[in-house]
C-alpha cells in the first residue's frame, strides 16, 4: 500500500453548539509529513476543528479522515494514530518525567518493558534524560511542554495536533518547542497546529489555512499567502504626524487596499501592485501637497498584513504587545 498523499482530509465539517454555528463547513487537506497551521481570530473555529479531528467532539455534518480512518465511525482507530497537545500541559506534577511517560505507555497497552524502553528513548530525544527521575513540579515551563509532547508521542503517532502549543511560553521555550516539532516532522509526522502567533506560523508551517467564522477562507504556503494579497507594501514615514490623514488619502489613490495608519510611528502603509507607477505618483503628489516625507520604502507584506486583509481583524503577535487598538477592542482571550 502506497502512502496516501494527505493525512488529514476534512470535507464540509460542521459543528453546532446549542444555537451557534461554530463550524459552517470546514474543508481542509493536510499533506503527509508537513506542518499545517490553522490561523484565525478568536472564536473562528480553530480549536473546534482540532477537537473534531481528535475525536473529542462529534461532527454534526460533513466528514473527515485522519490517517485513513473516519473520525466518526472509526474514532478509536483514529486515536491510535494521533497525539494531542492541548493549551495546558497535562502531565502529572507529582510523578517523575519517566513515570508520566510510563503512565501513557501503559494506557496505550504497551508491555511494561516496551513502555519503559519507549519512555527512555523519548526522554533522550526531547533532552529530558537528565531530569527523567525528577518530579515534574521541579521542571521548567519549557521542559514540561517538551514532556507533554513526548507523552503524546508514545505511540509514534502519524498525526500530531497542537492547540496553541506556545501560548504563555517565553521566547526561549517557544523555540525549544518549535525545534521539537520540527524534529518530529523530519521523521515523517504530520502536524496540525493552531496558533495566535503569526511569526510561529511563518517559521513552522509549510501550509497555512486561514479560518474565519467557522470556515477555511484560504490556504497556501506563507509565501503564497503573502504574494496572493498583491505585490508589495509601501511604507511612508512622515516628518509630522498631523499630515498622516492627508498622506493616507494620497496613498489610497495608488493602493490596492485600505491604507493603515500608525500614528506613534508617523507611518502609513498600504499594498500596491505596480510599484514603479506607485512610487512616482506618490513622490509627485506628496510633494505637490506639501507633505514632508522622511522615507518611502517598498517591502513584502508581513503575514500580519495578509491576515488583516483576509479576516478584517488582526491576531496578536508575539512582538506586538505594545497596545494594538484592534486587540484592545477585541478583548483578551480567556
Amino acid at each position: 500500500m502506497s502512502a496516501p498523499e494527505f493525512t488529514i482530509v476534512a470535507e464540509g465539517l460542521r459543528k453546532n453548539f446549542k444555537k451557534t454555528e461554530a463550524l459552517k463547513g470546514v474543508d481542509l487537506k493536510v499533506r503527509a509529513g508537513t506542518v499545517c497551521g490553522l490561523l484565525g481570530p478568536n472564536g473562528a473555529g480553530k480549536t473546534t476543528t482540532v477537537r473534531l479531528l481528535c475525536t473529542l467532539l462529534r461532527p454534526d455534518g460533513g466528514r473527515a479522515e485522519v490517517a485513513g480512518h473516519d473520525i466518526a465511525r472509526e474514532a478509536r482507530q483514529v486515536r491510535t494514530r494521533i497525539g494531542l497537545i492541548g493549551q495546558n500541559t497535562t502531565t502529572d506534577h507529582v510523578l517523575t518525567g519517566r513515570q508520566n511517560l510510563m503512565l501513557f505507555g501503559r494506557l496505550y497497552h504497551l508491555g511494561k518493558r516496551q513502555a519503559l524502553r519507549r519512555a527512555d528513548a523519548l526522554l533522550e530525544q526531547f533532552g529530558l534524560g537528565e531530569a527523567a527521575d525528577r518530579q515534574v513540579k521541579h521542571y521548567s515551563g519549557g521542559m514540561r511542554r517538551r514532556l507533554d509532547i513526548a507523552a503524546s508521542f508514545i505511540a509514534a503517532p502519524d498525526v500530531l495536533f497542537l492547540d496553541e502549543p506556545t501560548t504563555g511560553q517565553d521566547p526561549r521555550h517557544r523555540s525549544e518547542v518549535w525545534r521539537s516539532v520540527r524534529s518530529l516532522v523530519d521523521q515523517g509526522t504530520t502536524v496540525l497546529l493552531t496558533t495566535h502567533f503569526l511569526d510561529e506560523a511563518d517559521q513552522l508551517c509549510d501550509d497555512i489555512a486561514v479560518v474565519d467564522q467557522g470556515q477555511v477562507i484560504t490556504t497556501g504556503s506563507p509565501e503564497q499567502l503573502k504574494s496572493r494579497i498583491g505585490g508589495d507594501q509601501v511604507d511612508l514615514l512622515l516628518r509630522h504626524a498631523h499630515a498622516l490623514p492627508q498622506a493616507a488619502k494620497i496613498l489610497a489613490r495608488v493602493a490596492t487596499g485600505e491604507p493603515e495608519t500608525v500614528p506613534e510611528a508617523r507611518r502609513v502603509s498600504a499594498p500596491v501592485t505596480d510599484r514603479l507607477t506607485a512610487l512616482s505618483v506618490l513622490a509627485r503628489e506628496l510633494e505637490a501637497a506639501g507633505v514632508a516625507v522622511e522615507d518611502i520604502s517598498l517591502r513584502r507584506p508581513t503575514l500580519d498584513e495578509v491576515f488583516l486583509r483576509l479576516t478584517g481583524s488582526r491576531p496578536k503577535s508575539a512582538q506586538e504587545a505594545e497596545g494594538d487598538d484592534e486587540i484592545l477592542e477585541e478583548g483578551v482571550p480567556a
Partner: peptide
Amino acid sequence: MTVTDVRTPRDAPTRIVAVP
C-alpha cells in the same frame, strides 16, 4: 537536543497499538 530516530521499526509501537 539530539535527535535519535524513535520511529525505527525495531521499536515502532505504531503497529503494536491495536484496538480491542
